[in-house]
Write a protein that binds this DNA or RNA. Structure first.
Lengths: 199, 199, 199, 199
DNA sequence: AATGAATGAGGTTTCATTCAT
DNA sequence: AATGAATGAAACCTCATTCAT
């Protein structure tokens, strides 16, 4: 019965928020933002619905918090530790990270997709998308600049968009089709194509 | 003065249904299925909400009717008149048709994307998706079989999935980004890549 | 192509009204007033719903018209041709007529019952009920006055109410239970009871 | 300050549910099931319409709940404490209980009557009617078996139906006519008739 | 921090009624 | 006389949010 110290409260608070975010991600991913009810989420998190409003201002705020917490998922995709590696090597790492993230954070990306396609709610992702743009595009641009060193920047930009479209498309199909989608085979095929282009 | 004839009624029906479907496609695409209200649609179509229920059983039925009417959009993408053309030629036509359809039926495809990503409503697309599978996959399979005639069927299938992912990704990005997305440049780049692989 | 004479129009009009009333009685009896829709009735009568409003002001008016037409059903129950018959004889005829009417005009009485029990619509029956009161009560009063000639008018009135309750109850149960209800056996039993009381 | 305990919630729930059922019984009885709106009921109960849906799944469920709660009303009619009493004594108690219940639970029986006569909703009473059949019929059968010990079972059954019809008819007329209906006088008259038959 | 009772705006749906032809 | 397209009031129901405890 020792009184809790302030940092205990903070940690409890943080833990509670986390468990709500986790439950909400699952429920939003499963039912879609609109069909997921606050009660669903509360049940999944084993708390009362009132408590959700203790931690989040609104259902919208809860959604936004999920994506605020999602930046690390994104960073992991882009993590290339060895800087000395060449362009193809970087693409390989990128693809590896990407496939891994799709599998590990399936629900998060599923939710992301359903939100980004939903015109009314997609502005909730603006920060996330801005961050994505600010980090992902430059990285890809540098990689493809190295890969095709004789091209002009418009052409490089097209290559970047094409690669991005490919990743988005793979993610899209994987999320819709699920486990049966041969992620690994496709990853290898993509890599092979970029390798063959290099020579 | 003379009472309306059955064919008059039929034409009124057809016209009204079409104008509702048109308005609904726009509104659903703009706001998303759940955030679009029947009143929104009625206002867009300049009719009363009651009339919508005169022609469609429910909001769901209206959505389904939109996709039932969407098969032709899909067929147009796959239309390859000249059968004597080679694999690359077919891919080129396919890409041309695809890009054209994305531009011409932007709202339809935007709606399609938001629905397919929406877990709760996506089963409304089952017929559409089945049709897609039954027509699109075989066509791509035959094209890529010709293109890579030394590969086994699993590899061909992977090529098919890759091409499909590429198209889905391009559609995805175009729909999110809009007019600014360089569809034409990307199309040409894709085609160039497949051409270079052929040799 | 001889032009129709005025009386033809009148007769056509009458016939049309009749067929609507007949259909409406069936549909109202089957679904209840509120759950019966004008479209149901129009379909049953093989006409358009608009035409119903040509003949009747409203759904309510249609209901009222059914009961306005129902007086003869009621009169038939009370028809006792031979005036020289004694009280018991009259009761017997009354019961015979009553049972016959329940069977012949089942739907009408079923509708009557559902309306009379429905607080919101029952005032539509006021005329019918008034007529009932004005004709039925005096008749029963005279019969029971004869049957129990030594009783005072309050006692006679109680006998009248009891007999009425018995008939209402039999009708009620018959309508709910349907064909299986042993109307004839019950009729005979009632009659026997009144006969035994006579002595 | 201290949060509410589970038993507090339970008591709030019980109280609220009861007050809704009470209000709903009144409103349904007054306007009929279809003409009674959820808002009417909420106003009568001095709560919001949302709360009704917090406790009941639907308007239909609310109706059914009323009848689920009505079994005790029914049991009270059949309560005959003294088993040593003879058939006539039992009939007397039955009639007393019946008249008392009609007066005490007027609104409930009025609602019952309007529902049982309403073809579309009457199946909501199936449980209630089954219970009625399973309890009421056997009791009456045993009473009339004792009263007319020389009769065969078909005749006894007819007597049972006749008595039931009489009660239904009395209830029917009382509910329609209201306070002015001389329930007591009629009850006495019925009893006298059965007594006179006994000898 | 925690609960769940209570609210009410807003959405879908029904259907009697009107009206142009 | 006849049709059925078109209207809109009114009903049911959902659910994010508030609040007393």
């Amino acid at each position: 019965m020792t009184p809790r110290k302030p940092e205990d409260f903070a940690s409890i608070r943080k833990k509670s928020k986390q468990s709500i975010i986790k439950a909400a991600t699952k429920i939003f991913a499963k039912y879609g933002f609109h069909n997921a009810s606050i009660v669903n989420i509360a049940e999944k998190a084993n708390i009362s619905k009132g408590l959700i409003y203790h931690y989040f201002d609104s259902k919208d705020d809860l959604l936004q918090s999920i994506f605020s917490q999602g930046f690390p998922f994104f960073d992991e995709i882009l993590k290339i530790d060895n800087k000395d590696i060449n362009a193809i090597g970087k693409i390989e790492i990128l693809l590896d990270n990407f496939v891994k993230s799709l599998q590990d954070n399936f629900e998060f990306w599923k939710l992301y997709q359903s939100i980004v396609s939903n015109p009314t709610v997609s502005h909730r992702l603006d920060d996330f998308k801005k961050y994505y743009e600010s980090v992902f595009s430059p990285l890809l641009f540098s990689i493809f600049s190295e890969l095709y060193d004789n091209k002009d920047s418009v052409q490089i930009q097209t290559e970047v968009l094409l690669f991005a479209a490919l990743m988005d498309g793979v993610a899209f199909d994987f999320i819709i089709i699920g486990e049966k989608y041969p992620l690994e085979a496709i990853k290898k095929n993509i890599l092979k194509k970029y390798k063959s282009m290099q020579k």
